[in-house]
Design a protein around this nucleic acid. Sequence first.
DNA 1: ATGGTGGGGGACCCA
Length: 264
Amino acid sequence: MRIATWNINSVRMRMDLLLRLIDEAQPDVVCLQETKVVDADFPMAPLAEKGYAHAHVHGMKSYNGVAILSKLPFASRDVQHWCGKQDCRHVFAELPGGIELHSVYIPAGGDIPDPEQNEKFAHKLQFVDEMTEWWTTRRSPDRRMVMVGDLNIAPLENDVWSHKELLKIVSHTPVEVAKLTAMQASIGWVDAVRHFVPPTEKLYTWWSYRAKDWAASDRGRRLDHIWVTPPLKDALTGHRILREARGWEPKPSDHVPVMVDLDV
DNA sequence: ATGGTGGGGGACCCA
């Protein structure tokens, strides 16, 4: 089973690039974040034509929005809300084999890395705390689960282009990294991409739109993740970060697709 | 220290 995740930054703006991802990588399941479209307007038809007959979409006007598009049927599906908001950041569904797949979009958190001064950063920290509590109390490490998405946190030193220069930059501050690490430990999540790539190697999934030449400066961050629970660790057979998608014409997303293969 | 580029939707908000 090949699972892809991508912060597409508007599914309507980049439908052609989504079809390109599908043609080139042939995932069984595609999880999206930042779809930026209400469910009634989600462009289903071209995806159904490609064999993605099962779609679990959860979007809103202008902001956020997550989805799971699948060739495989869902045994069940659900949405989860956090921090008392209704902002379309988490959907999940049960795939064949009893695998529960989560597509998640953690708040970016604004610019100032102080929850007292910046309510967006406070929201981000609370979001991770609540989610950690949820995994701990509502889910078991024995369950077969996959969690993917734009977590907006780069936890390791080599998940950013300069650990030292990004310590005070939201996405790599010690406080949010500690919270993400605690969430990972809560039920023993395995970082599926780092399972294949040693922590000494630089690894990015996002490059800012604001760079003059994203590839030349290569100031990236690994914000997009795929985690699996311990029962699926030995099922991991491969991974791919589609770096070239950052250059897809005419208008790339600032995030690139991340994929893993599971032998299930 | 600053400003750089996108999407949405029609002024600014969010990333």
